[in-house]
Every structure is written in C-alpha cells, then in structure tokens.
C-alpha cells in the first residue's frame, strides 16, 4: 500500500455529471509516486472521464484532485486551466485515438512538446526573431532530448518523416515519447496498448517500466489489455458505472469477486439473489 504513504496524485470525491448522467460518482483514489497505477473497468465505466478531469479537459462537478510534487508543493488540478496542468503541474497525457501532429515530422512533434521552455529561451519570440539570445543553443538541446527519446522508442531513423506516415504501433510509441518530452511527473496513458500486437505490447511494457525506473515518472494508465495491466502495474483501481469497486495490488484485484462479476457477470445460481436485490 505504498500509494497511500506517498501519493503523487490524490483524487478525492471526484464527481462528474453531464446533465442527468453521472459519469463519475464520488470517486477517491491515490496514485503512488514512481508507481504504475492502472485504471480498469468495462466500457463506459468512466475511465476516460476521470482522465479528462485530471488533465483539465473537463472541469469536475465536485471533488478535489491534488498533485504533489517531489519538493512537497501541491497543485489543485481542478482549479488550473488545461495548459497549465501540463506546464506547471507537469501532468502529461496521451489519447485513446492517437492525436499526433500528422503533417509535422516526428522530430517536430517532439519539439512542439518542449514548447514552453523553448518559448522562454526565444525570449517569447521577440529575441528569437532578431536572432539574439540563447535560442539556437536551447533548440540544439531540445533536439538532443528528442533524439534521446527517438532512440529509446526505436524511431531515430524516421525522425524526418511525417508522423502521419508511421505505422500504428510506432505512432503510439511516438505519442508516449512526445508526452515524456514535457518532463512530466505524472504520465497519463489512455489505452496505450490498444491495437498493438503481442510483440509490440511487450515492447510497450518494457518502455513503461524504463520510464518509471530511469525518469522517476509516475504512470497512470487506462488499459483493457490484462497482460499489460497485470504484468507492469503496481496498483489497480477498478471502476464500474463511475464508482470504484475495487482497489489494490494486481493480485488482490484479480481475486476480487466484484471485479469478476463486473467483467464476466454473475454465476447462474446467484441470479436469483441479484434479482431479489433489484426487486424483479
């Protein structure tokens, strides 16, 4: 239960309503520092809604989300506008349907991710246009950082190709690398293994583990692929109909009857009990 001792993200009583629909209802969980936390649940359980709340794309109806930096400073994510969550609180994300800048090269994608530090280096454009200041140096180091990530995700040979030309698996990896170029302390991955073949899926596991080990980044991921979830995550949170039904280590969650019921339904002999409960 390390995630309770030193949580990087603490979600408390998060509720998100769309009109009459309660997408997420009174959800509380913690994500541990330098841990991989998986959020799983059947389709429509509200996982992506939670992500959108954390990364500022939705303003939650109720609740509090606290992000704790290593130095102890805290950010209340529900109060920050989306771009400041990424820049100040250092939360990066990927998307379920890949959102790369397809008409820009792979390298350009990674440089766009370093927009804010480069913007400061270019004197908010004023110095950069005139060619004074340390912009050229800053760009070189940004390219070096991008190169580091391209080598890591094995795309260095395609650095000058448009991102839209890459095969699907490579696009997924590139999106993760792009998010990592913002130097996040919390990386939110929305179904990173969707559409990957088993080999690519294994590569992804290795990439995510190395991100955690080498960069000290905490990872929050939504995933349906149980081979990914069970192998690499330290902590699993299970959602169903917008509420948390289980929370624990992969082993604990795997053996939780409520989780099994949510995923597979209930056994025949229990149907009568359930029906009595609902009053049919």
């Amino acid at each position: 239960m390390r995630w309770l001792a030193d949580p990087v993200l603490e979600v408390e009583h998060l509720t998100m309503r769309f009109g009459g629909l309660v997408a997420v209802g009174d959800l509380s969980f913690q994500a541990g520092r330098r841990e991989i936390t998986a959020i799983i649940g059947p389709n429509g359980a509200g996982k992506t809604t939670v992500f959108n709340c954390i990364t500022g794309f939705y303003k939650p109806t109720e609740g509090m989300m606290t992000l704790r930096q290593e130095d102890g400073s805290e950010y209340l994510l529900e109060r920050l506008p989306g771009h400041r969550i990424a820049w100040k609180a250092r939360v990066a994300r990927t998307f379920q349907n890949i959102r790369l800048f397809s008409g820009m090269t792979v390298l350009e994608n990674l440089l766009v991710a370093q927009h804010n530090p480069l913007m400061i280096a270019s004197g908010f454009t004023f110095l950069g246009v005139l060619g004074i200041g340390g912009y050229a140096e800053a760009e070189r180091s940004a390219v070096a950082k991008a190169t580091h990530w391209l080598e890591k995700i094995n795309l260095i040979d395609r650095a000058d190709d448009p991102a839209g030309d890459l095969p699907y698996g490579a696009q997924r990896r590139l999106e993760i690398a792009r998010a990592m170029c913002t130097d996040p302390i919390l990386l939110c991955l929305d179904e990173p293994a969707a559409g990957l073949n088993p080999r690519e899926s294994t590569e992804l596991n290795r990439l995510l583990l190395s991100i955690r080990e080498e960069h000290g980044t905490s990872i929050l991921l939504i995933e349906h692929d149980m081979s990914v979830v069970m192998e690499i995550s330290d902590h699993v949170v299970v959602l169903d109909y917008g509420t948390k039904i289980s929370d624990g280590t992969p082993q604990e969650v795997r053996n939780d009857q409520r989780v099994v019921a949510a995923y597979l339904g209930v056994e025949d002999e229990e149907v009568a009990v359930v029906e009595a409960e609902v009053g049919v």
């Binding site: 990364t55 500022g56 794309f57 989306g82 771009h83 400041r84 969550i85 990424a86 820049w87 990066a92 994300r93 998307f95 959102r99 790369l100 800048f101 397809s102 008409g103 820009m104 350009e108 766009v112 991710a113 927009h115 804010n116 792009r178 998010a179 913002t182």
Partner: peptide, 15 residues
Amino acid sequence: EALREDEIACRSLGI
C-alpha cells in the same frame, strides 16, 4: 502549425 494540426493535443502539451 501544431494548432492547425490538433488543438486538443496542443493543450495537453502545455501550449
């Protein structure tokens, strides 16, 4: 140019 390509991705990168 990134904005022209995908505004949502831009926001997620802190732009």
